[in-house]
Computed example of a mutant assay.
Amino acid sequence: MFLSRLLDPVKSAAREAGAELWHMYQSGDFQQQQKTDSSPVTSADLAANRIIIDRLSELTPTIPIISEESNLAPLSQRQDWPRYWLIDPMDGTQEFVARSGDFAVSIALVEHGWPALGVIYWPKEDVVYYASRGHGAFKQQRNLINRISVNNHQPGDRLKIAISRRQPLQPIVDLLQSQDEVEYIALGSCSLKSCLVAEGKADCYLRLGPTGEWDTGAVHVIVEEAGGKILDSEFFALSYNQRDTLANPDFMVMGQASIPWPQLIKARRTERSLSI
């Protein structure tokens, strides 16, 4: 009941933040700078961040908030939090700057170390993906709501893999055990590619390179409620709020459980996955 009561106000907060992003995107009235890790941040990210934090603080004053665009509390302070909000006010800042429209608002509630509620809003398409643990995953476009599930992939079907518009393809190709019957689907935003898997438009998404826990929190519950899995590059579960930084290892978003994923995708250990 607690999660179900939160869904509508969280969807509203995501839409409000997304509307502000879309206004600034269309007007071009935003400033860009680089963070210390050389990734871009814009005044639009910060405006959406303020909206979401204000709305969540009003909704649940006692639940702490972790955001990509806010200072991170030390692990000693946050490691015993029973629940917290985990947000990315704009997933896909590079897509925002590049004018592709493939950016999204991401809001998750993490309970006892695992995502329990997730909302993704895509302003360009006015689409909300959402889920709460144990209650299924859904896609809402305007007033039309449909339950979503991973693709019913059959033996012999072409494997559909979601890929980034901005990253080279070859590292992804190198992870595949076979190159036969593969179709690549390019889209921006980490969370939107994961949602492609959740709604059955792609069978998997292989993510290489830096991401944070805010990139997977909301989609994690959406993908799992749709029948899929998100695992690291060694086929182990991701973890949340366990380390000083919130950096993710490389990860895989996988659809239908009956697909023999270890026979299709090479497990690999990386320095990043070993260090976190």
Rank of each mutant, 00 (worst) to 15 (best):
D157R: 01
D157F: 00
R158P: 02
L159T: 09
L159Y: 03
K160T: 05
I161F: 12
A162I: 13
A162Y: 12
I163H: 00
I163Q: 01
S164M: 04
R166V: 11
R166S: 13
R166P: 00
Q167G: 01
P168A: 10
L169V: 08
Q170V: 10
P171A: 13
I172E: 03
V173E: 14
L175M: 15
L175D: 06
Q177A: 10
Q177V: 12
Q177Y: 14
S178Q: 13
Q179T: 04
Q179V: 00
D180H: 14
E181T: 07
V182K: 06
V182L: 12
E183P: 00
E183Y: 01
Y184F: 15
L187H: 13
G188L: 05
G188H: 02
S189C: 04
C190E: 01
C190L: 02
S191D: 13
S191Y: 03
S191E: 14
L192R: 05
S194L: 04
S194D: 04
S194F: 06
S194I: 03
S194C: 12
L196A: 02
L196Q: 09
E199Y: 05
E199P: 05
E199I: 01
E199Q: 10
G200I: 12
G200D: 15
G200T: 11
K201E: 14
K201A: 14
D203C: 12
D203K: 00
C204A: 15
Y205I: 11
Y205K: 06
L206C: 13
L206E: 12
R207D: 11
R207Y: 12
L208V: 14
G209N: 06
G209W: 08
G209T: 09
G209Y: 09
P210F: 14
T211Y: 01
G212E: 02
E213Y: 02
E213K: 02
D215T: 08
D215S: 11
D215V: 08
D215F: 05
D215Q: 10
T216Q: 02
T216R: 01
G217A: 10
A218T: 14
A218G: 07
A218Y: 08
V219L: 06
H220L: 14
H220F: 15
V221L: 09
V221C: 09
V221R: 12
V221F: 06
I222A: 03
V223R: 05
V223D: 08
E224K: 13
E225S: 06
A226F: 15
G227A: 11
G228W: 10
I230S: 02
L231V: 15
D232S: 09
D232T: 12
S233G: 14
S233I: 05
F236T: 03
F236N: 13
A237Y: 04
L238N: 00
S239L: 00
S239G: 10
S239W: 05
S239F: 08
Y240E: 00
Y240T: 06
N241R: 01
N241P: 04
R243M: 12
R243W: 03
